Amino acid sequence: MKITPTRIYSLFFALFLSLGIYSCKDQKAENKDTETAEVQPEENAKPFFKLSLAQWSLNKPIFAGELDPMDFAEKASEMNFEGVEYVSSFYAEKIKDSDNPEESMQKVLDTLKAKSEEFNVENVLIMVDGEGELASPDKTEREEAVENHKKWVDAASFLGAHSIRVNLFGSEEPEEWKTSATQGLKALSEYAAEKNVNVLVENHGYLSSDAALLVEVIENVNMENCGTLPDFGNFCLKREGGERWEAKCIEEYPKYQGIEEMMPHAMAVSAKSYDFNEEGQETTLDYERILKLVKDAGYTGFVGVEYEGENLSPEEGIKATKELLIEVGSKLNSNNN
């Protein structure tokens, strides 16, 4: 075939068009990839809250003598937690049985504070149990409970913790309970205010798990340092045989409603967990629904991991709960809902 100048020109022109088309295709593909990347959630998104470890998650190894409660900060640090939430009963018996309880308490606090500083974890709060019924209708009994709690207010102040968590047990008659609970809680909150410590009530069974009634009490106390600590799972109102713990729950407050009602007064949050499926989702609680309620309330403080399951070891359960909180919390934060 004879190659003429005209044919050479035609071949070059065809080649030019071909290169241009592929170039445009490549550019479009690149633009499309860029657009797709822009709408994807931010890979480095973090939860909208901070993570703390509730000491109760480790109650089994502590009761078994496998973990010294004095080493709690070190354990939490090993598991990459930013904050710690102490349980008073892990220290109270040793303090009470000593020859000099005040001196023993100070030694415990000195050690806990030093450990928290050594392992760089924040002391968030102390969960106080076994110090009397703040909602008792008996004035003498109620006032004694207030006095018993004061040493833990002082302890929180020394440790730099922002709060103590209290139970609000007492009368089982709603109106009487509201009156007694308001009086006991207000008296303790007035003392705590002088120490710059908050007094938080957890939904922890019986009338304290009736969120609507509890919010009435908090609003009746009407103090800035008196609030709630919503727990994801403790909404049992009655148990078989009238038992306070362990027995089967026979009446429960609507948990999602309860969390939503408590959140406007929340100064801490407890992420209870019991069991997980193969996908890492909690099988009894809708974590995305709950954390959406927490986020919508504008809460950005600590969320404490409190695993209470039987099918995983404490460490495995803590890890599963933490990972789920990070996953869901990051998703909600990146979605900016």
Results as ranks from 00 to 15, higher is better:
40 Q>W: 06
49 F>L: 07
56 W>N: 02
22 Y>H: 08
45 A>L: 02
21 I>H: 05
26 D>R: 12
44 N>L: 01
26 D>S: 12
26 D>G: 13
54 A>P: 02
41 P>C: 09
21 I>Y: 04
22 Y>E: 11
45 A>T: 09
36 T>W: 05
42 E>A: 11
37 A>V: 05
52 S>H: 04
31 N>I: 11
44 N>Q: 08
56 W>S: 01
49 F>P: 07
48 F>N: 06
22 Y>A: 12
51 L>W: 02
29 A>R: 10
31 N>R: 13
22 Y>K: 12
57 S>R: 00
41 P>V: 11
47 P>E: 04
58 L>D: 00
42 E>Q: 10
53 L>A: 08
31 N>E: 14
34 T>Q: 13
53 L>V: 03
57 S>A: 04
55 Q>A: 06
41 P>N: 15
45 A>S: 12
24 C>F: 09
47 P>L: 02
45 A>W: 00
24 C>D: 11
42 E>L: 09
41 P>H: 12
48 F>R: 04
42 E>T: 13
41 P>M: 09
38 E>H: 15
50 K>N: 08
59 N>Y: 00
30 E>S: 15
38 E>T: 14
34 T>W: 10
27 Q>D: 14
58 L>Q: 01
59 N>C: 06
59 N>S: 07
39 V>A: 08
44 N>S: 11
33 D>G: 11
49 F>W: 01
36 T>D: 11
30 E>A: 15
26 D>W: 05
28 K>P: 06
54 A>H: 05
60 K>I: 04
57 S>C: 02
49 F>E: 06
25 K>D: 05
21 I>R: 09
23 S>N: 14
34 T>E: 13
38 E>K: 15
48 F>W: 01
36 T>I: 11
59 N>T: 05
56 W>H: 02
29 A>T: 09
51 L>E: 03
36 T>R: 14
28 K>G: 13
45 A>V: 04
49 F>H: 06
57 S>W: 00
25 K>H: 09
50 K>F: 00
30 E>Y: 10
46 K>H: 03
35 E>M: 12
53 L>D: 01
38 E>W: 09
45 A>R: 08
58 L>M: 04
43 E>P: 07
48 F>T: 10
22 Y>R: 12
54 A>E: 02
60 K>T: 06
28 K>M: 14
23 S>V: 08
51 L>K: 05
41 P>D: 10
50 K>L: 02
47 P>H: 06
50 K>H: 04
51 L>P: 02
48 F>M: 05
40 Q>F: 06
39 V>I: 09
31 N>Q: 15
57 S>Y: 00
25 K>P: 00
44 N>E: 09
36 T>P: 01
53 L>W: 01
45 A>D: 03
59 N>I: 02
26 D>N: 14
28 K>V: 13
59 N>Q: 05
44 N>D: 09
37 A>Q: 12
51 L>F: 02
33 D>A: 15
32 K>A: 13
33 D>Y: 04
23 S>I: 07
25 K>F: 04
49 F>V: 08
22 Y>T: 15
23 S>W: 08
33 D>Q: 14
53 L>G: 06
